[in-house]
Each structure stands twice: as structure tokens, then as C-alpha cells.
Computed example of a mutant assay.
Amino acid sequence: MRQKLRVAAYAICVRDGQILLARSPAHDGTPEWVLPGGGMEHGENPYDTVVREVEEETGYHIEVTGLLGVDSFRRVFREGLRPPVDHHSVRFVYEGRIIGGELCNEVNGSTDLAAWQDLDAVPGLVRVPMVDIALRMWRERPVTGRLANTPE
């Protein structure tokens, strides 16, 4: 079975009771909310990845104010007649503060909309599980950088 490792970095930016999210189409085309962030480029530091990705997906410049944790999950994916892939994701979750730029949507990228969402409204949004994982890290601030009992 083919193995694939993906390392990514995401930012949780909260201000005035709202969280910054981006919208991305799921595999079936349904829009779902995601954290701004994404995959590291070869040779890139995760810190630099999150700064770059937030700017690309939201238009904002951020100051990274802390590393909240690292999440890891592994799953076997099967697509059509292709052989299954053993996929392992390692995801750095940073806290960020907006220091400049203007909210705008990514053009020709992995997301199509960036928006502030009320924290209280997040449970009602169609979202990826990573949003909930990051919010738990932000609220609980685990000293080990790892949450117990994550859903993925």
C-alpha cells in the first residue's frame, strides 16, 4: 500500500467573539468551513507556512502568538479503482493575531471565501473536524500540545 505523509500548519485567529475561517469545497463539492492554513512546501518551516497560508486564503497578515499544539491522524483512503493510500497527516496549530492586510477571498486556490464567524455559531456550521480540534486546543491549551480523545 502506498504511504503518503502530509505536514500542514493552521492558524486559529479569534477576536471580538469571532473566529476567522475559510470555505473550501469538500471532495463531493459541498462547501465546508476550514481553518486558514495548509500544506508545507518542501524546505519550509511550519511557522512560515501558517503566515503564508493565512495571507493567501484571507488577505490578512498575522503575528503568530503561540503554538497551541500538534495534531496527527492516519487513515486509509480508497478512490474508485485506484489502490488504497495510507495517509498520515501532521498538523501544527498556531494562534495568530491579525496585524495588517484586508479581508479578501483567495483567487484560484483551495478556498473561495474567507469570513469571520461567531464562536457560538460554529457548532451549526458545516465544517471539517480540524476546526473543532483547533478550538479545543485554543480553549484547553494542553501543556503537552496534544489533545486527549480527538475525533479523527
Rank of each mutant, 00 (worst) to 15 (best):
G69L: 03
G66M: 05
P129L: 01
G59R: 09
V93R: 01
G59H: 06
N105V: 00
A115E: 12
A114R: 03
E106N: 11
S110G: 13
E55M: 02
V85W: 02
A121C: 01
A121N: 04
P83E: 14
L103T: 04
R75D: 05
A121V: 10
T111M: 04
L68P: 05
V76D: 09
S72Y: 08
P123E: 08
F92Q: 00
D86V: 04
G80K: 03
I62P: 07
V70H: 02
E32W: 09
R97L: 13
E102Y: 03
P123W: 05
V107R: 15
N45A: 10
R91K: 12
N45G: 00
G80A: 05
D28C: 07
I62W: 08
G96M: 09
H87R: 14
G100H: 10
F92D: 00
H88L: 15
L35A: 07
V64F: 02
G29F: 11
E106H: 12
H87N: 12
I98F: 05
Q117R: 12
Y47W: 14
E102L: 05
G59I: 10
T111A: 08
D28W: 06
D48E: 13
D71R: 03
V122H: 03
D48G: 11
G100E: 06
T111H: 06
E56T: 04
V90A: 04
Y60F: 15
L81M: 06
I62G: 06
S72A: 11
T49E: 08
V107S: 12
W33Y: 12
V128A: 08
Y60R: 01
G59E: 02
V90R: 15
F73N: 13
P31A: 05
L103E: 07
P84L: 12
G37L: 06
E53M: 14
E44I: 08
V76I: 15
N108A: 15
N45T: 07
T65Y: 02
V51C: 09
E95V: 06
T111W: 01
R74S: 14
V126G: 01
L119M: 13
E102V: 11
P31S: 06
G29S: 11
D71N: 13
V76E: 09
Y94E: 06
T111G: 08
D112V: 07
Q117N: 02
V107I: 15
I98V: 15
F92K: 02
S89E: 15
P123D: 10
I98W: 01
R75K: 15
W116T: 00
R52W: 02
V50C: 03
V128N: 07
G96F: 09
I98S: 03
N108S: 14
R74L: 04
V51H: 00
L103S: 02
V50S: 00
G59T: 12
H87L: 14
G66W: 00
W33N: 10
G39W: 02
N105L: 00
G80W: 02
E106W: 01
S89A: 14
G100L: 09
Q117H: 13
F77V: 13
M40F: 03
D86N: 13
D71C: 05
W33H: 09
H88W: 08
L119H: 06
P31H: 06
D112W: 03
A26F: 03
L35I: 03
V34A: 09
V85L: 10
H88G: 00
V107M: 11
A114G: 09
E106S: 08
G43D: 13
I99G: 08
V64Y: 03
A114K: 03
E44T: 11
G101N: 05
R127H: 13
G96C: 10
F73H: 15
V90Y: 01
P84C: 10
I62K: 07
